[in-house]
């Protein structure tokens, strides 16, 4: 399997993990280890001064893991820049999953603010991985603005509905000059494999693992699915539907005989 390179850094695993919704930090840590993931997202929250709690960071800090702070909760580009600066300070990394979703119901990304924020953050020296709509033109614009990857959604976040945007993802993958990470909507290992077979560079999975009956075994299943899908892509997929025969009758090409 080819290594994945983002902003000059190389990754052996093409499975990125989100850390939300796990029943416990211990379970999350085990799931991450089992998944083999080398890129793990982390959110930020205000410290509750009265109720000190377990520090989740220690469960995900590991030399092989690139922390990917997200900007979840911000509603526009200005807030995103602030959140990014806080994240860089708190976690000591300039990597950033940029997500701007002003809509609290479906958490759909705001394309216009995302592009604006990408432009600003790149200038401020961040490695920006924007979560975005599966919009091929937007993805080119983000790339031109200096995004290190694009992270188009497969389906609304948390829905586990799979690659509802497949036709657009295919165009994005074909056109992109940066890695394409399919984010959001991947609900099962088969979805992850499908994205990898399409030629996605990586997938980001959270809910599907976190809420599984056994998250650790599900993390293992995703690891295998992502590897299988990527291997299939690199090996050159055979046709599954069409079975072309060499054609003896030649109505269109008789003039060439």
């Amino acid at each position: 399997m080819e290594k994945l390179t983002i902003a000059g850094k190389s990754f052996s695993s093409r499975l990125f993990l989100g850390t939300g919704k796990f029943r416990s930090n211990e379970l999350m840590e085990q799931a991450i280890r089992t998944s083999g993931s080398e890129m793990v997202t982390v959110a930020m929250k205000r410290i509750d001064l009265e109720n000190p709690e377990d520090d989740m960071l220690r469960h995900i800090t590991h030399e092989s893991i690139q922390l990917l702070p997200n900007t979840s909760g911000v509603r526009d580009a200005e807030e995103a820049v602030f959140a990014a600066q806080m994240a860089r300070e708190a976690f000591g990394t300039n990597w950033l999953k940029l997500e701007i979703h002003p809509d609290p119901r479906y958490l759909l990304p705001d394309s216009i603010e995302t592009l604006k924020a990408t432009e600003k953050l790149v200038k401020l020296g961040f490695v920006v991985l924007p979560y975005c709509q599966a919009d091929p033109v937007l993805c080119k614009r983000l790339e031109e603005a200096g995004a290190a990857t694009v992270m188009p959604l497969g389906a609304p976040i948390g829905t586990n509905r799979g690659l509802r945007t497949k036709d657009f993802l295919q165009i994005i993958i074909e056109q992109a000059g940066v890695p394409v990470v399919v984010d959001a909507g991947i609900g099962s290992p088969s979805h992850a494999a499908e994205a990898m077979e399409l030629g996605a560079s990586a997938v980001l999975v959270n809910t599907a693992i976190a809420i599984a009956a056994d998250p650790v075994r599900m993390a293992n299943a995703f690891r295998q699915a992502v590897e299988a899908g990527r291997e299939a892509y690199e090996a050159g997929l055979g046709s599954v539907s069409a079975n072309f025969e060499a054609n003896a009758s030649s109505p269109l090409t008789a003039f060439l005989q």
Partner: peptide, 25 residues
């Protein structure tokens, strides 16, 4: 021939001698 999004390797196959029997297709 079965793909919708072809890469250059596929193109090489289609212009190669191996594709000659598939000219009508």
């Amino acid at each position: 021939l079965a793909k919708n999004h072809l890469d250059v390797e596929d193109f090489m196959a289609l212009i190669s001698p191996a594709a000659e029997p598939y000219l009508e297709t």
